[in-house]
């Protein structure tokens, strides 16, 4: 099994340094991603999804720093201080798609020009040849006719098309891993499905591994191979996607699944999780979910649980049997 592991992060810790306090945004994160796999990371806002993904290539804001941990990518160690190596990896081997595509694109350059930059910086292709390459990627994300979209500026495109353009840019230099950070949360349902279909196609055709960050469990059922659920900067449950959706073990995962409004649901009120999302600067002792957990026990208040095996490939951090 070890041979086809693309990315392995172990004991990754990222801290944010404020004027008078330090916040542990990512805590002891262990993550494994196999080749050609789609992994979904789920959690509410402020639970460390984005921070942990930015940590993978040290794209962190200035106030944040990786304090501990090791990342192996394609069998090689990613050195966090080696800016030269990081620049070669970012965009070329690990690329990102962010939530708000319209804000991520430069409004002053046409979409095609912005994608061409990828070929010029990463693959050193002379600019004359690069245009054809751009047209090829535009076609592969279904922006057809590519010739027309090449010269469009971001404001002339809709949100979904901008997101396609961002994906085109991200896959331009044929990366091994695409990290998509809530790429569909500002899109409506049909556009969202189109983008998910596109990502799945690319996953098959280009052997692209995808890490998909979202706070919406409902869309990933037929999309992701594996799921990781995060709470307060920690992974609290991980495993096979279908297994977790069918048989969630952690009270937080269970509660999150019940919060979803469903068509079949005939109850008058939805289930909710009492209280607010954990405040990273003021975390409780023991299990970080304990203030909101309906099954809290004495041990939960004292000691943080370790990963426990539920079934093959399904792990959870909870004391409950």
């Amino acid at each position: 099994m070890n041979s086809n592991i693309l990315l392995k992060a172990s004991k990754l810790n990222t801290r944010i340094f404020y004027k008078d306090s330090v916040v542990n945004a990512v805590c002891d994160l262990d993550l494994e991603l196999r080749e050609k796999e789609i992994l979904a990371i789920i959690g509410e806002s402020g639970c460390g999804k984005t921070m942990s993904m930015l940590s993978l290539t040290n794209l962190l804001p200035q106030s944040a720093k990786i304090t501990e941990g090791q990342i192996l990518f394609n069998g090689k160690d990613i050195e966090m201080d080696n800016e030269d190596q990081l620049r070669k990896i970012r965009g070329a081997q690990i690329s990102y798609v962010f939530q708000d595509a319209t804000a991520s694109l430069n409004p002053l350059f046409s979409v095609g020009e912005q994608i061409r930059e990828m070929f010029i910086t990463h693959e050193k292709i002379p600019s004359a040849e690069s245009k054809n390459k751009v047209l090829e990627v535009l076609e592969s994300v279904n922006l057809k006719p590519a010739e027309k979209y090449y010269s469009y500026y971001p404001h002339q495109l809709s949100g979904g098309m901008n997101q396609r353009a961002m994906i085109a840019m991200a896959i331009a230099s044929k990366p091994k891993l695409l990290i998509a950070d809530e790429p569909t949360s500002s899109l409506d349902r049909i556009t969202e499905m189109q983008i998910l279909n596109l990502l799945r196609d690319l996953n098959k055709k280009m052997n692209l591994s995808i890490i998909f960050i979202t706070h919406n469990i409902s869309i990933i059922e037929n999309f992701a191979d594996r799921i990781v659920i995060m709470y307060a900067g920690r992974i609290i449950e991980k495993g096979d996607a279908k297994e977790i959706l069918r048989n969630p073990k952690h009270p937080y995962t269970k509660a999150l699944l019940k919060c979803l409004p469903k068509k079949e649901n005939k109850d008058k009120f939805l289930n909710t999780i009492e209280g607010n999302v954990a405040d990273l600067s003021d975390l409780p002792d023991g299990c970080k979910f304990n203030p909101r957990c309906p099954y809290v026990m004495d041990v939960c208040l004292k000691e943080e649980p370790e990963f426990k095996k539920v079934s093959e490939g399904h792990f959870t951090k909870c004391y409950l049997e």
Binding site: E44, S45, H215, N216, I217, A255, L256, C259, L260, P261, K268, F269, L270, N271, T272, I273, V277
Partner: peptide, 15 residues
Amino acid sequence: LDLSVQAQILNLFIK
């Protein structure tokens, strides 16, 4: 809003 908060707000609307 996040999923858990969305559920709280929807319940509030019904109440």
